[in-house]
Design a protein around this nucleic acid. Sequence first.
DNA 1: TTTCCTGCAAAAGGTTTGCATGAGC
DNA 2: GCTCATGCAAACCTTTTGCAGGAAA
Lengths: 131, 131
Amino acid sequence: MKAEKKIFITKQRQVILEELKKTVSHPTADEVFLMVRQRLPKISLGTVYRNLELLSENGVIQKLDWSGRQKRYDGNFENHYHIRCLNCGRVDDVLIKPFSVVEETFRAVSDYKIIGHRLEVLGLCANCKKP
Amino acid sequence: MKAEKKIFITKQRQVILEELKKTVSHPTADEVFLMVRQRLPKISLGTVYRNLELLSENGVIQKLDWSGRQKRYDGNFENHYHIRCLNCGRVDDVLIKPFSVVEETFRAVSDYKIIGHRLEVLGLCANCKKP
DNA sequence: TTTCCTGCAAAAGGTTTGCATGAGC
DNA sequence: GCTCATGCAAACCTTTTGCAGGAAA
């Protein structure tokens, strides 16, 4: 039996979540830090990391542990795909329903127990595709 | 006009590539380092990193810049998907033909210029799915 | 008043880089 | 001989962690 820890609602936690919900980009931890610091100038990067971790463990936000140096965070936990610009690194949501054929196909050809899939489409965003 | 650099064929470069081609796993840089060091005991980690970078820039191998702390390298540059075990981190190739519906769909719903896609299926490998 | 959080700073872990020396062509 | 590559170590960057003081319930 695992003793559940209580989660206190602190100012820092609240502001981090609000800022993350407010943006449509998928900020990195230090971008969140910069946003939050405008409202709470004394907050530390460590606190931002700890809270992003805790919020994603609890399914409140999503940690995008994808390619690139830094992880990105998404305040919106619906099931959706991402599209990433190879030139500027921008990441956008694409709200289409999941391709069920993907997992069906893999179930048929692999001896893994399939749990899910991640799809990232790569390209050039509207800005970067211009000559 | 960009002046091309010449690439010399060194013992280190050769052995790194051979070891990478020899394995069916998708080793991390330090795993490659351990493998190569059995044949070239004086090689440094820096050299391994520099060569893996150079080989992947030249399309000889593939850098898997996916989720997880460390990057993995794949000696086999065919177009294929990967399946990853959520328990032990193992990565296997899945040799099926690409889902063309993916890029078609994204082309239709997004204003990005689509260049490619990456699909990673997640699950439990044969070993880890056992009770 | 107990438990959980925070700020700060240091440590960790993976990767990159500067530099002098050494190997390929 | 000129270029490029290597070994070594230090630097770098992102993320994690230890700790003492501070806030939430």
